[in-house]
Simulated scan of single mutants.
Amino acid sequence: MTHLTLNVNGSAHTLDLEPDMPLLYALRNHLGLNGAKYGCGLGQCGACTVLVNDKPVFSCLTPCAGMEGKRIRTVESLGTAEEPGELQQSFIDSQAAQCGYCIAGMLMRAQALLERNPHPDEETIRAHMATNLCRCGTHLRIVEAISRIARREVSHEQQ
């Protein structure tokens, strides 16, 4: 075990962890942040996606040892069930979640895109989101939810 300090959602957490422990396990089992899900364990589905220094990463493949000094953000940083963030609300309004298992990862990947490019076109959204999978097939609703935010930001800027 090693003392590792992880900066998660703006707070520092010093934990005793095996350095090779996947970040996903530290988030879920040690910090109680259960938004990111274990899907495939191979970095192929995206259910475990979190942001590290504003870039989406598969937390199931990311060892904790390399995370010290980096900013880690999970879906819990976007809002709550009582007060969802703007992107979360757009997913709700678009009925983008069916079973909901993939949604935390989808939200974090979409958040990274919108922070880098606030006005992506549909082609850009589709290409960026292709890494994350939804077994229920709500991809069209997910793209619509992200597009709503991109359009809303454009309309706000034009006012």
Rank of each mutant, 00 (worst) to 15 (best):
residue 77 S to W: 00
residue 78 L to W: 00
residue 78 L to S: 06
residue 78 L to F: 06
residue 78 L to H: 01
residue 80 T to Y: 02
residue 81 A to R: 13
residue 83 E to Y: 12
residue 84 P to E: 03
residue 85 G to H: 01
residue 85 G to T: 02
residue 85 G to A: 05
residue 85 G to D: 02
residue 86 E to V: 09
residue 86 E to C: 00
residue 86 E to W: 04
residue 87 L to R: 07
residue 87 L to I: 06
residue 88 Q to I: 09
residue 88 Q to D: 06
residue 90 S to C: 02
residue 90 S to G: 04
residue 91 F to N: 05
residue 91 F to A: 04
residue 93 D to E: 15
residue 94 S to N: 10
residue 94 S to A: 15
residue 94 S to K: 07
residue 94 S to V: 01
residue 95 Q to A: 14
residue 96 A to L: 07
residue 96 A to C: 03
residue 96 A to F: 11
residue 96 A to E: 01
residue 98 Q to A: 09
residue 99 C to D: 12
residue 100 G to R: 01
residue 100 G to H: 03
residue 101 Y to P: 07
residue 102 C to Q: 04
residue 103 I to S: 11
residue 103 I to Y: 11
residue 104 A to W: 12
residue 104 A to L: 11
residue 104 A to E: 12
residue 105 G to H: 05
residue 105 G to Q: 07
residue 105 G to F: 11
residue 106 M to N: 06
residue 106 M to W: 13
residue 106 M to S: 04
residue 106 M to C: 05
residue 107 L to K: 03
residue 109 R to M: 13
residue 109 R to G: 01
residue 110 A to L: 07
residue 110 A to I: 13
residue 110 A to F: 13
residue 111 Q to W: 12
residue 111 Q to E: 15
residue 112 A to T: 08
residue 112 A to N: 10
residue 113 L to N: 06
residue 113 L to I: 07
residue 113 L to G: 02
residue 114 L to T: 03
residue 115 E to F: 00
residue 115 E to C: 04
residue 115 E to G: 02
residue 116 R to Q: 14
residue 117 N to G: 00
residue 118 P to A: 13
residue 118 P to V: 09
residue 118 P to T: 13
residue 119 H to E: 14
residue 119 H to S: 14
residue 120 P to V: 06
residue 122 E to I: 12
residue 122 E to D: 11
residue 122 E to K: 14
residue 122 E to G: 08
residue 123 E to R: 12
residue 123 E to S: 14
residue 123 E to I: 08
residue 124 T to K: 12
residue 124 T to N: 10
residue 125 I to Y: 08
residue 125 I to W: 10
residue 125 I to S: 05
residue 125 I to Q: 03
residue 126 R to Y: 10
residue 126 R to A: 14
residue 127 A to D: 14
residue 127 A to Y: 06
residue 127 A to I: 04
residue 128 H to Y: 12
residue 128 H to F: 13
residue 129 M to Q: 11
residue 129 M to W: 08
residue 129 M to G: 04
residue 129 M to L: 15
residue 132 N to D: 08
residue 133 L to N: 07
residue 133 L to Q: 01
residue 133 L to W: 01
residue 133 L to E: 02
residue 134 C to Q: 05
residue 134 C to K: 05
residue 135 R to I: 12
residue 135 R to M: 08
residue 136 C to E: 09
residue 136 C to M: 01
residue 136 C to A: 08
residue 136 C to Y: 01
residue 137 G to P: 05
residue 137 G to S: 10
residue 137 G to N: 10
residue 137 G to L: 06
residue 138 T to S: 11
residue 138 T to K: 10
residue 139 H to F: 15
residue 139 H to C: 00
residue 140 L to H: 11
residue 140 L to A: 15
residue 141 R to Y: 13
residue 141 R to D: 09
residue 142 I to F: 12
residue 143 V to F: 12
residue 143 V to S: 00
residue 144 E to W: 03
residue 144 E to R: 15
residue 146 I to L: 03
residue 147 S to V: 00
residue 149 I to G: 04
residue 149 I to F: 09
residue 149 I to A: 00
residue 149 I to N: 00
residue 150 A to K: 13
residue 151 R to S: 13
residue 151 R to M: 08
residue 152 R to I: 00
